[in-house]
């Protein structure tokens, strides 16, 4: 979705956060336009595609960002890294509370638009991916989602998880192999027919 007030695109997240902490309202709008979609996408992946819970997590993560703004220590951490870490922790808390609730309890995507077979297949693959991701251990899930869906670098993922880059590579590799295994069992359904 586009937001008209993201006019400060050349300003860093950190500069905007400091400006917000000093009372600048426009900075809050720019930060929301820039960061809320990322948090929302990440949270949705972490929560098995549950849009409602992902919105709650997004609001809570952003609220924590607003609260820390006056005390933000410049140059110590990237705003996005801090925000991914907070979001990952919030998702983990919710997943633990949700323990015992199966994937069947996760609502179907509301957007059931009819369309071309390609669009339907894309939607089906995305949903299968959400289900396969939900079965991964949490740290593997964070690593795979950040690397392959959010496009973040290994050093940034290492900073979020507070582990080494090598450990991130190992987590990502194991996560991808687990996804290949679980999605491989649904290959025909997902349009990958054996020759």
């Amino acid at each position: 979705m586009k937001m008209a007030f993201d006019a400060q695109s050349e300003v860093s997240d950190e500069a905007l956060l400091v400006a917000y902490g000093n009372g600048d309202r426009a900075a809050a709008m720019a930060l929301t336009a820039r960061l809320a979609p990322r948090v929302m996408g990440f949270a949705a992946r972490m929560l098995g595609g549950d849009r409602h819970e992902a919105e709650d997590v997004t609001q809570e993560a952003m609220l924590r960002l607003w609260r820390i703004a006056p005390d933000w220590r410049q140059g110590e951490a990237k705003v996005t890294t801090w925000l991914y870490r907070v979001t990952a922790n919030l998702c983990t808390d919710r997943l633990r509370r949700r323990r015992g609730v199966g994937l069947d309890a996760i609502p179907e995507p509301e957007d059931g638009r009819p369309g071309a077979a390609e669009a339907m297949m894309q939607e089906m693959r995305a949903r299968a991916l959400d289900e396969a991701l939900a079965a991964l251990p949490e740290r593997q899930r964070v690593a795979v989602v950040m690397r392959h869906l959010e496009g973040r670098s290994n050093p940034e993922i290492a900073a979020v998880l507070e582990i080494s880059v090598e450990a991130v590579e190992s987590l990502t590799a194991r996560g991808k192999r687990a996804l290949s295994a679980s999605l491989g069992q649904r290959r025909e359904e997902l349009g990958y027919v054996e020759d």
Partner: peptide
């Protein structure tokens, strides 16, 4: 039994395209 890397990349692409927006 494993899905190929190419197929997995396609599924990741489908996931990125279906990312829910706020």
């Amino acid at each position: 039994d494993l899905l190929s890397n190419i197929a997995l990349d396609e599924i990741f692409a489908a996931g990125r395209a279906e990312t829910p927006a706020p």
